[in-house]
Write a protein that binds this DNA or RNA. Sequence first.
DNA 1: TGAGTAACTCATAAATTTCATAGTTACTTG
DNA 2: CAAGTAACTATGAAATTTATGAGTTACTCA
Lengths: 128, 128
Amino acid sequence: MYKPKLAKDIRCPLEYGLEVFGGKWKSRIICVLAEKEVLRYSSLRKEMTNITDAVLASTLKELMADGIVQRQQFNEIPPRVEYCLSDKGKSVVPILQSICRWSGAYHKEDSQHILSQCQKCDYNFKAE
Amino acid sequence: MYKPKLAKDIRCPLEYGLEVFGGKWKSRIICVLAEKEVLRYSSLRKEMTNITDAVLASTLKELMADGIVQRQQFNEIPPRVEYCLSDKGKSVVPILQSICRWSGAYHKEDSQHILSQCQKCDYNFKAE
DNA sequence: TGAGTAACTCATAAATTTCATAGTTACTTG
DNA sequence: CAAGTAACTATGAAATTTATGAGTTACTCA
């Protein structure tokens, strides 16, 4: 569950980056939002195979707390809430792309890992 | 402790990258080896404040299993073992640098995080 | 009237990662 | 002859991350 981590003292830029977009689901959410631009909660969940509500909701809160994702809520019933990347969020996309390019360059040498098609979602940054 | 993870099926390039250099210590080890080039076990541990032998040894094995770090052992007593980055390992350095640059660009807006001096080691990639 | 919907929250529980402490080997130096 | 050294391993515990399954609200449509 989401716990508003009380000012964890991160002084290392590497650590800060990996905290903000590392972990199991964060980069994937950024990835999907980069492709689709705006998604409501339920659509986002459909794009992410095997994520549960508890984990998705909590991860979104962390991403919002770090200023990566923006949330807009419409007061309708049933509720409608839309998520998109902030400018800060968009600025991490090139980093994720460079990670994908790097992986693409090395997976040939590493037969254990067959890259290119993710089982979590269909949106990968192409490594070309 | 190091468990030789039996062919975890990673098909996503993002996941692969974050698995290889994400986590608490991996990027830091890469970072220190990039700066010092060659280090023996004990020197490496001295550079990483607060790491324990169990964690360092196990992390090094993972980095070796992924082809990031190379190990050379001299049959002397007391033992001497030297670690350095492989070519693959060197190739992740630019990614880590881009993460640091990104963090540098955003920490001003995020008063909660004061970046630049890490408490784990003194080797950060300068963000300029 | 009753089921369905969207976007969650809550309380646990399981899994994974990290840590702390002690022990090992075969020497060298005081 | 005892203590120190380097590079670890082993074991179990603690901390952190991720997952499970049910419950909530205020409607709408059949």
